[in-house]
Amino acid sequence: MPMRTLRPGQRTVVMIGGPELAEPEIVFETDEILLEAPNWTAGGRLLLNGEGRLFSLDLPPVADCGEGAAPTAPAPAAEAAAGSPRGAEVRTGPRLREIPFDGLPPINNDHVLHPDGAHIYMSAADGQIHRGRLDGGPVEAVTTGEGGHFLHGISPDGALLAYVDVDTHWQGRLVVQDLATGERAHVPTGTGHVDGPEWTPDGRWLLCSSEAFTSAPGHAQITRVPAPGRIGDGAGARHAGAGMREPAADGPEHVLISGTVDWFPHPSPDGRWASYLTYPPGTLGHPEDREVVVKLVELPDWSRPVRAYAIPGGQGTINVNSWAPASDRFAFVSYPIG
């Protein structure tokens, strides 16, 4: 899959939304690189991929991001670190910096923070998921085998990964892997493609986008399935066991019935809120450069958005969980032209 780049006249706009923000706030803009899929670290910075690399973006102080504040201009640029192994040279500065990894293939927009606050898991062009430290350095592959492994979730205790295996027909299957043993289990999700699996904070469920409840191709809907735990323990257990067990219930549960195409449900760390992305009816998959809406709901009610931010975006806008640790804000990306 080729790495995305900005179109002529297009720019990356990193934005912040939240329950108290009627309008999203701009915290960073650039016309030099297409950045995607923010993660929000415990240290108060965002991690975004771009041109196959991972970048760290320091956020302005909260006092500078209050409601009604003027958009923050891009920071003065300095030259990128020497020896960048691939892609065009990207001018970075005090706020945007490349994280230098050793031996990491080009990555995509599926990357997830470990609960320990020190590591990140990244899906790469070699089809595998790699683990590295947030400050860079060597990486290690934690998956094996053919096909693509598209990572979206890690269990609250950091013991299990949830990702999607895709076949040659781009049909996804939900997989949960034990990081200690490497053991994998396929989680039943019904018929149709599934993508974006992510644990709820209590460890009981995996949220995902699924085509199990529609006959329309590509019409993803927000779904949840019971999360598998360890043998001898409950779902989301924190103790090592001899292997994986299957979920306690069969099949997926439809949590939001809508006419839109709904992608990437992300619960806040406290479990009170969730964000997700909606496309117009008839959209196939989650393409880039479309008119989309980033929605915020107060759980358990998925049907009545508290906030709805209409933006030019889509692919790369909010592929992975981007909530702040305090559950008061989340980040997403827009890609306007002109």
Rank of each mutant, 00 (worst) to 15 (best):
D289M: 11
D289E: 12
R290S: 08
E291F: 06
V293C: 03
V293Q: 02
V294T: 05
K295N: 13
L296F: 10
V297W: 07
E298H: 06
E298T: 04
E298D: 10
P300H: 08
D301W: 10
W302R: 11
W302T: 11
S303C: 06
S303Q: 14
S303L: 11
S303A: 15
S303H: 09
R304L: 10
P305W: 01
P305E: 00
R307N: 06
Y309D: 05
Y309T: 06
I311G: 06
I311D: 05
P312E: 13
G313W: 02
G313V: 12
G313T: 08
G313R: 00
Q315F: 15
Q315S: 07
Q315I: 05
G316E: 03
V320E: 05
V320R: 02
V320Y: 00
N321E: 03
S322V: 04
S322M: 11
S322H: 05
W323A: 10
W323K: 02
P325V: 11
P325G: 13
S327V: 07
S327P: 08
R329T: 14
F330I: 09
F330W: 12
A331L: 09
A331H: 05
A331W: 09
F332I: 09
V333L: 07
V333T: 14
V333A: 01
S334M: 08
S334C: 07
Y335W: 10
